[in-house]
């Protein structure tokens, strides 16, 4: 592990219930002894230093490459919305849960990383919204196309999608299981934004 730290491609990241600490290997031992007296260690691992860690819940985080910083921010906004919502009117319908948010965030992170690694471009950043009946909507909407992905509460329940170019020339429609997506299906729209 020291070799990994030496070439600066990895950093040691410990995630506690009170937040992150990020230390050099040399400082690690002393600090850990002190910090452990005050916080519960949830996770202690080496991660790629070119990634951003997004907290969904205290025991569930997602690492996203820094190139996808805007995607990470949007996922964080959806978490903050749920963390801070106080005046959701129940007459407006059921609000999504952290479990559903895990599914949606995992899909969005996995898909955007796949496009970055395999297709070589950064996808436009969508908005994450509450959907009908406790679901989550992920919406791409720009001058070239609209694409809506609806994620349900359990990963075994299919997510559905519909997208179209604004000129109506192309459209995509279907469903997929989270974690088992045909990765090419949205590219007809997303590539227009390269």
């Amino acid at each position: 592990m020291k070799d990994l730290l030496a070439n600066n491609s990895y950093k040691r990241l410990a995630f506690y219930n009170k937040g992150f600490i990020n230390l050099s290997e040399e400082d690690w031992f002393d600090y850990k002894q002190d910090y452990m007296n005050h916080a519960h260690l949830i996770e202690d691992k080496f991660v790629d230093s070119n990634s951003i860690r997004v907290r969904i819940t205290d025991d569930y985080t997602i690492d996203i490459p820094t190139e996808l910083n805007d995607i990470a921010k949007e996922i964080s906004k959806a978490v903050e919305f749920l963390d801070n919502i106080e005046d959701w009117d129940p007459d407006e319908g059921e609000l999504y849960t952290y479990s559903t948010l895990k599914n949606a965030a995992s899909f969005l992170a996995d898909y955007s990383i796949w496009v970055l690694n395999e297709q070589g471009f950064v996808i436009p950043t969508p908005k994450i919204y509450p959907g009908p009946n406790g679901t989550i909507d992920i919406l791409w909407k720009n001058e070239k196309f609209k694409l809506l992905v609806n994620v349900r509460s359990h990963p075994d329940l299919s997510a559905t999608f519909y997208g179209k170019t604004n000129d109506g020339e192309e459209f995509v429609e279907g469903k997929f299981k989270i974690g088992n997506i045909n990765q090419n299906v949205f590219l007809v729209l997303l590539e227009q934004y390269k």
Binding site: W88, D89, E92, Y129, P130, P132
Partner: peptide, 19 residues
Amino acid sequence: VHKNWIRDGELNPGTFRNN
């Protein structure tokens, strides 16, 4: 449309739902 269905100034498509 309730204000909760607006975020960052934009209309949320979840507005369109059956009751």
